[in-house]
């Protein structure tokens, strides 16, 4: 029996893109192998969306690295409601507001590690990224304890930052998983965080993962933005990320 799979003689072009090109076909359809590869990638993404952040493990790892930590939850009661009601994920649960461990003197920067849409990303990349960031921080900057936030959206950082009396909040949050990466981390910086900040008032560094934007480059971008934000007293559309101009080798 002849192989019914019609191959595509342009597989060499795969060197230029990770897109699913030259998959071949059976009749009008994808070959079995490609269908299952796609389904596997989707399964990874689905599991990433629905997995919960292991706060105990993350806290232990952070403390081993010498960080102080505290943890907060949003008002979303569970993962399903979290997906349906983004507004709940943007507000702190009333119980979280009274946690004494989150109270501190006024600081310059509050880092938050949040599950967002990929707890896997937060768990895998939060701590190693913070290690790279720490190496670049100015000793003059006062830091809040690292906040671990669950069932969180980006804007939850506004209330956390305000609560911590921080000049700047840096939200390290799991991004919506794609098929090529279920574990991309995003960093959102907001100057003078408080309820009601808009996305236009934030800066974002996206696709942080070893196979995407490396920890080292991401840390350089984030710290460049931190320094600019504290100096110019703003984040958002008026603060263009020009870190490449100063960071590129040579």
């Amino acid at each position: 029996m002849n192989d019914p799979v019609v191959p595509n003689p342009w597989t060499a072009l795969r060197q230029f893109t990770d897109a699913r090109i030259a998959l071949g076909r059976v009749g009008a359809s994808l070959p079995t192998r490609e269908v299952l590869q796609f389904d596997l990638a989707h399964a990874h993404a689905r599991d990433a969306v629905h997995s919960a952040l292991d706060v105990t493990a993350l806290t232990a790892t952070l403390r081993l690295e010498g960080w102080l930590t505290c943890s907060v939850e949003s008002r979303a009661p569970d993962r399903a409601r979290y997906l349906l009601r983004p507004d709940l994920g943007r507000r702190l649960h009333p119980d979280s507001l009274t946690r004494r461990s989150c109270e501190a003197a006024a600081v310059d920067i509050a880092f938050v590690i949040a599950d967002g849409l990929s707890a896997v990303a937060a768990l895998r990349h939060g701590v190693p990224l913070l290690a790279q960031i720490r190496a670049l921080l100015s000793p003059d900057w006062r830091l809040a304890p690292i906040t671990i936030a669950t069932l969180a959206r980006v804007a939850l950082g506004d209330e956390i930052g305000a609560r911590l009396r921080s000049r700047l909040v840096v939200m390290l949050i799991g991004e919506r998983p794609g098929l090529s990466a279920p574990d991309s981390l995003g960093a959102y910086l907001t100057y003078e965080p408080r309820l009601g900040r808009t996305d236009a008032e934030r800066n974002c560094v996206s696709n942080i993962r070893p196979a995407g934007l490396s920890y080292q480059f991401a840390a350089q971008k984030i710290v460049w933005l931190i320094a600019q934000a504290l100096k110019r007293q703003l984040t958002g559309i008026d603060l263009k990320d020009e870190s490449d101009l100063t960071l590129l080798p040579g």
Binding site: T17, D18, A19, R20, I21, L23, R25, G27, A28, S29, L30, E34, F38, A41, H42, E175, R176, P177, G178, L179, S180, A181
Partner: peptide, 26 residues
């Protein structure tokens, strides 16, 4: 028409070139 229905820039799933072939033949 997105290669393999997987948009690697926008991180979502659309329809593939194969999907169009399926509609044409059906």
């Amino acid at each position: 028409g997105v290669p393999g229905a997987d948009d690697i820039m926008l991180s979502y799933q659309s329809t593939s070139f194969h999907d169009a072939l399926y509609l044409r033949s059906t």
